[in-house]
Design a binder for these strands. Structure first.
Lengths: 362, 362
DNA sequence: AGCGATCAGGTAACCGGTTACCAGCAGGAG
DNA sequence: CTCCTGCTGGTAACCGGTTACCTGATCGCT
């Protein structure tokens, strides 16, 4: 039916009555070619609907590779916004960019990374919180070496550095600082019993946020209460379910909620409403991330510069940015892992109520 | 510090003391190779950190290409959800999938399509509403032919078919039907003055929705009022701005709003609230798409099976699905344009109030 | 007219794999 | 003890471009 037999450069050359070299030159554009010859070639190309084979082309001449970002799911706004930043910066740098999703499946992640290094992608950007165990470290270290061997750069976003000799760049948000700030915001509004909703032991992002939460409580002299730290995955359903369970177990022992992220907050708000509790009149709530749903919910939250993270990752990967003085306040891992941290700030909307008399610690 | 000089299959062969063919066979997996030999090769591969060059590989052996989806922006939930569906189905079919974004830039779209056809992608899925003018038709027709010549299939989602001889498959939602249903929902709740917010003359999606809206009004004997059809892009800001302008111009002459999509509805709701109008007590509102924000807003809307659209696009592209009844056995080329339409249904939440005395709807 | 300098364009050697085809060598059959 | 057969593994011809190098023709100059 259709020309399933490929049109090659030799076909074009034959049709135009010239040699393959000439065709290649006309297409390349740089080499001087007589106008008449050029026209013949151009006409032949058009007539045959010729498309140069990218693989063959890439095989001989080295051309800039694509920039790939790998995320769990593109339907999660947090990832989508970061991907957006990557795309923008990549476009600005004249690179093509690709988004790949793993669905949280390690196997798919593996095959995507393999494919990307085979494609000689210029950079591979892995985004997203993970449980950092030995298996993970090992896997990432392998990725890093394999990608380096293939000439690609690896950038980790929102994950801890891998250690000394591992060729990977790291960017992340200041989760502890943001959590500290937003918790302090609740505290200074008079809240003392603040539920943290979104505990995920081992998960880097959640752990950092919990750390900020605890630090803020401690600073304000509020004793930590493990009963106020509730586990929940970072999605809407989990937030809803966890809050529902909590409310079903008895009347709320808290006046405010710090949700691990905005989606959790959204779910929690729904559960609160269904339980007849109003936000913020009865219960105050804050989120984290400042993704679009937060605006509709009127949620006070921590704004993350998502697109800046994406852009920074690309700039890092392309060497436009040097990862700062190695000693630049990275109390993280051991030595001078190359890490960049982006600041965050609170966005105050209407989901927090100021409690009556300030120091009235009921 | 790193081996910027590539490791080739010949290096591996030399190190393992075998021929390149053997290495290739070991890596390929199918060909029978003595265990001892295999081990030598595997060891050499590991020691050298060898990665086969995907381009060279693709050049000789034809392997399944990737499936690419091209959207405006991945930060728009509508696109993200469809992309999600594509990814899922592609993964299920054992294909790798890529998401590319154009940012609405025709130039970038062009270079992405060029790149994809050079890469011999198995399928290219273009998603999103557009203004269908001659320039557009011409551009798409060119894409279609070029992709076909390169052996890739083109699938259009949510766009009208291109015409007889053009090799492109089409899937879409039943926008007219959904708009009709949701308008009828408002009408049967007693609303007569319904503002359509989201007019975009020429834009396929909006046009279909307007058509459904008008048809429902006509069926219920409500005269069309051009003053109730307001222009707005399909995003939150546009919805907000348009509603704000409308309210600033005088007291609302409508009791209900049909927003072109959920984001427009979100913006409109914010504007209504800021203007002291409550939803649904003062003004009822419905949206379209049923993207996640709709849930938080408690918005009555039209649910689109986004992921089904993505999955269908992939199945179509891979020939798993024959495009519908139009003379089903039609050898392609001639015959009816190959179009598939997915049904939609209303999701009733709390954003519509039933007006006083139920006027006879019969 | 004779000569080298220019310039357009052709030839063929790559790029790094895959695989059709073939050769060596073992074991079993005659 | 041959001959055939089956299994392994090597050789080399592709895949479809790019480009270094070279040739033949044109042109300017003495």
């Amino acid at each position: 039916m259709t020309p399933s037999n490929r049109v090659t450069i030799r076909d074009v050359a034959k049709r135009a009555g010239v040699s393959v070299a000439t065709v290649s030159r006309v297409l390349g554009g740089e080499y001087p070619v007589l106008a008449a010859t050029r026209n013949k070639v151009v006409r032949a190309v058009r007539e045959l609907d010729y498309v140069p084979n990218a693989h063959a082309r890439a095989l001989s001449a080295a051309r800039p590779g694509a920039i790939a970002i790998v995320v769990n799911s593109v339907a999660v706004p947090y990832y989508a916004l970061i991907a957006q930043g990557v795309e923008e910066q990549a476009a600005q740098e004249g690179r093509l960019s690709l988004i790949c999703t793993t669905g949280g499946d390690t196997g798919r992640e593996l095959s995507i990374v393999r494919l990307l290094r085979e494609q000689r992608a210029e950079a591979v950007i892995l985004v997203g919180s993970v449980v950092v165990d030995d298996e993970y470290r090992e896997r990432m270290t392998e990725y890093a070496h394999a990608l380096a061997a293939a000439g690609s750069r690896l950038v980790l976003c929102g994950r801890p550095p891998l250690g000394e000799g591992v060729p990977a760049l790291v960017v992340g948000f200041d989760n502890t600082g943001g959590a500290h700030a937003v918790t302090a915001h609740l505290l200074s509004a008079g809240h003392r019993r603040i539920l943290y909703l979104g505990l995920r032991p081992g998960h880097t992002t959640s752990d950092s946020r919990v750390a900020g939460y605890r630090a803020a409580l401690a600073e304000h002299g509020v004793p930590a209460d493990p009963g106020l730290e509730v586990e929940a995955e970072f999605d809407r359903e989990a937030g809803y379910a966890a809050m529902r369970r909590r409310l079903a177990a008895g009347p709320p022992s808290f006046t405010a909620v710090f949700a691990g992220n905005d989606l959790v907050a959204a779910g929690a708000i729904q559960a609160l409403r269904e339980h007849g509790l109003r936000v913020p009149e009865d219960i105050s709530i804050v989120g984290y991330d400042d993704v679009p749903p937060a605006q509709d919910l009127g949620l006070t939250t921590v704004h993350l510069p998502h697109d800046e993270l994406g852009r920074t990752a690309v700039r890092l990967a392309l060497g436009r940015l040097t990862p700062g003085p190695p000693s630049s306040g990275a109390p993280d891992g051991a030595g001078a892992a190359r890490v960049l941290t982006l600041g965050t700030h609170i966005v105050v909307r209407g989901s927090v109520r100021r409690l009556g008399p300030p120091v009235a610690a009921r």
